[in-house]
Write a protein that binds this DNA or RNA. Structure first.
Lengths: 118, 118
DNA sequence: CGGCATCCTCATCGATACTG
DNA sequence: CAGTATCGATGAGGATGCCG
C-alpha cells in the first residue's frame, strides 16, 4: 500500500498545501498569461482579491522561488512581478488542471443541478 | 490581458477551490495508488486525517463524481471507495504536480534553510 | 502605488461522544 | 466499521487605516 504521506517532511504535502492556498494557482496562471505585471494589474485581473491577500500570497510565492519581485526606485513606486524559471516549470502542471476543469466542468455542473431538488 | 476569473461561474476557480481543500488531492492519489479501499484503509494510509474530515472530503469528491462509494449490506458494515472514470482522468494532472514537487522540493528546502537566519 | 499593521469575522478542522 | 452530531479552537482571509 503506497502512501506519500505523513512522513517527517513530505514534499508532496508541502507543495500541495502551498498551492492549495486560495489564490496561489490563480496568481500563477495570471502571471503566466500576462507576463510581467504590476501589483495593481494583478489585483485588477483577479478582481476579488484583497490587497492584503495579494501581498501575502505573492510573498509566499516569492519565498518558494516561483515569482520574481522587482522594485523600481521611482516616485510613485513601481513594483513588477513575473514568474521565475521555476514558476514557469510549474505552469504546465497547473494548465493541466485548468484544461481538465474546462473539459469536465460542464457535466459536473449538470449533475449538480440534478441534485438540487433533494 | 487574459483572465479566467471572477466571472459569474468560473469552472477553473470552481475546480481549483475544490481540489484546494486540505485533503482532496491526497485522497485521490491514495485511491489511485491502492485502487479500491475501505474507509478505514484510507484513513490509515493518510495517517493524520480525522474521521470527520475523511467523511466530509469523500462526500465532496463523490458529489463531483470523482469517487465511487459502495456500501455492502453486511454486519459489521463495509464500505469501499474507488475512483470513478472521471476521477481517473484527473490523476495524471495531479501526478504532474506530485512529480514537480518531488523534483523541485529539495532545492526549495535548501533555500528555506538559507533564510532561517534572518 | 504598493505596501504593512491591526482588528475582527467566519469557515475549516480536530476532539469527543454517540449510533446503526 | 463507518459513520453522524456537537462543540470549541485555530487560522485564513476581509476591512480599515497609516506610511514611504
Amino acid at each position: 500500500m503506497q502512501n506519500f504521506h505523513h512522513n517527517a517532511v513530505c514534499p508532496v504535502r508541502d507543495i500541495l498545501s502551498h498551492l492549495s492556498s486560495k489564490w496561489a494557482m490563480l496568481i500563477l496562471i495570471t502571471l503566466d498569461a500576462n507576463q510581467t505585471m504590476r501589483f495593481s494589474d494583478i489585483q485588477k485581473s483577479i478582481g476579488d482579491i484583497s490587497q492584503r491577500m495579494l501581498t501575502v500570497s505573492l510573498r509566499a510565492l516569492e519565498a518558494d522561488g516561483l515569482v520574481n519581485r522587482k522594485v523600481y526606485p521611482e516616485v510613485p513606486p513601481r513594483v513588477e512581478y513575473c514568474l521565475t524559471e521555476r514558476g514557469d516549470s510549474l505552469i504546465p502542471c497547473i494548465q493541466g488542471l485548468v484544461n481538465w476543469a474546462l473539459t469536465h466542468m460542464p457535466q459536473i455542473l449538470e449533475e449538480r443541478k440534478g441534485r438540487e431538488f433533494l
